[in-house]
Nucleic acid binder design. Sequence first.
RNA 1: GUGGGUGUAGCCGAGAGGCCUAAGGCGUCAGGUUGUGGCCCUGAAGAUCGAGGGUUCGAAUCCCUCCAUCCACCCCA
Length: 417
Amino acid sequence: MFQAPRGTQDILPEEQHYWSFLQQQASEVARLYGYQRIDTPVFEEAGLFVRTVGEGTDIVEKEMYTFEDHGGGQMTLRPEGTAPVCRAYIEHGMASKPQPVKLFYQAPIFRYERPQAGRFRQHHQFGFEAIGEADAALDVEMIEMAWRFFGLLGLKNLTLQINSIGCQQCRPSYLKHLKEYYVPHKEELCADCKLRMDKNTLRLLDCKKDAGLPFQAGAPRSVDNLCPDCAAHFEKLKAGLTALELPFGINTTMVRGLDYYTRTVFEIQPEEERGQSTIAGGGRYDGLIGELGGQPTPGIGFATGIERIILNLKRQNIEIPPFAKPRVFVVWMGDAAKEAAQKLVTELRQSGIVAMMAYSARSLKAQLRLADGAGCRYAAIIGGDELARNAVMLRDMHTAQQELVAQDQLLARIVLP
RNA sequence: GUGGGUGUAGCCGAGAGGCCUAAGGCGUCAGGUUGUGGCCCUGAAGAUCGAGGGUUCGAAUCCCUCCAUCCACCCCA
């Protein structure tokens, strides 16, 4: 038997109302804040991600689905959404549009990871990117937008954490400083951290394994080593969030797993922290467009995992609007009535009424059971008598009242609630 | 990639080497007289007991490998 590949899943009909609801809400948020939809290919040249996400990162090192196509090119299934959007921004000359250019997407994301609850090899993200504006007011708006989105969905007990990890100017000296701090403690660090010292110094900060070590608390913090511009930016961000009364926490050990981030980084997660809990994460990437060969252009964005949102909606027992039920089930008895029934459902559908019928012969009882099971408001029964009079016996499934209705009157009778 | 738990019909789940030609519930289908649903009753279909190998006279039950899933780590959405 074939199974869906590890870490992937079918989105069954019973789940679709969640997806549909989230798409609507995301589109509404995008509309309110002026974001336009963009769709980029499912795969890109591998180099796009290696260059931007960073060679030392887990994503590039061990999680990318990379393959060689028939032309010999190295292609990678999109492991994150920001780099492709930035590639498109450059490729289509969006720098000549009014800035910032605000784009959003819904896209499948592929990472070769070990699956767990809330973590898959193929998952889906909504992402929002605003490119071409460096002011912290945009950072504030973006974080507020993310917060608003979850509020619209009805998710409660979320926490917002922010941090600033500096820019191309101040980061190198900070990293040097950080490394110098850890060198004397090298032997006490875990095996991973010994490697991180050279390859990914920032990550030393949020190592869970070494979190308890006494010298960790005294490690130099990026927020204390910002250049004047970055420091000012961070102050404006905090002031802006405070002015909007967004309850944020500063997490000085939060770094992100992608190299392109600068200055502002943030994450939103449920208070009751379990395993894979982060539902949104993002930050500023002022060097990314330049890294890809465009004119130096600032940008900021975040992405949110759709499967994790649904997981949390379920955990919090939040009701999602179900799809509309069919309006009417046309019940028939006998071949002549069957023909009339098929004609009738066709006409009803042409008028926008959701109508259904049985295709093969079933007892009246069985057909009514089907109507009930499907949640139909009405059953329209056509037997010999009704057929002879061009009528149907219209049964209200809620009240169990029924009356004879001419077939040409049926639409008018059931169209209203 | 590391460590641990789990895997019985579409779903939930009993079952702990021979009483298993595998219980029960949900769901599906058909009936409960002649044209009427939701409750109730009856019946039917549906399982190579995750896959493959092994131990044994005998395996759903024990062992091994693989696959999947869940939890923790790692990382992230």
